[in-house]
Design a protein around this nucleic acid. Structure first.
Lengths: 105, 105
DNA sequence: AGTATCGTTCGTATTATTACGAATAAAAAT
DNA sequence: ATTTTTATTCGTAATAATACGAACGATACT
């Protein structure tokens, strides 16, 4: 059996995808992308989870590089990280459009 | 605190994303999309995981609707599920392009 | 100083994911 | 009929993800 490791691109795409892999995080990103709101408190009022759980999800999105946060007292403001958002768009598009249309199965 | 549940679209997108959320599954989908190979055995020779683990990952992709499999003895042949693949492309594109470009944070 | 507000971190419980090898199943080849 | 090939399922272990409330820290308000 062979065993080549994964490419950086595969790892990066999987990382982005994993961050998108929960409904609450999809909802957060939709809100931020549409800029309906940016504040933790506002999101907390809309989403069906505890504040502490929201913090966790926001952290995962931040760790994946998809969002960034700033303290704007008395609240905390989040927004999309444009650079990585664009990168993610490109990478998903690349995977999902590079498809051979011939029937196989 | 409010508590609306998630939409079907958010659930569906998260499900697709979760399926893409592991490097080995990204690698599998790339192979299938490019049709470099479709057979379990061939993938097994390239990927750095045990055959049983590969089966698990293939099952997750199948459950998420992104691939389909057929027995073509003596092997098993997998390929992209075009309908859902296209749906996934549309959904990711929708999320990732519906973005307000104004600076926020 | 004391109190309220806002988020994060901590501690913890539950469930899900990932991985492997052994055992199994199903058909083909000998 | 036995063996080989191919892939899945089973059993199991280790780790990660998800969720909550309590405790904490930082700032603003009284």
């Amino acid at each position: 059996m062979a065993k080549e490791e994964f490419t950086k691109e595969q790892e990066q795409l999987a990382r982005f995808a994993k961050a998108l892999g929960h409904p609450v995080r999809v909802a957060i990103l939709q809100m931020l992308a549409k800029q309906i709101c940016c504040y933790h408190g506002d999101m907390s009022e809309v989403l069906p989870i505890a504040k502490s759980t929201l913090s966790q999800h926001l952290n995962e999105l931040k760790d994946a590089g998809l969002i960034q946060g700033n303290i704007t007292l008395p609240s905390v403001k989040y927004c999309i990280n444009m650079k990585n958002w664009t990168l993610a768009r490109t990478m998903f598009e690349t995977l999902l459009t590079e498809i051979n249309n011939e029937e196989c199965c």
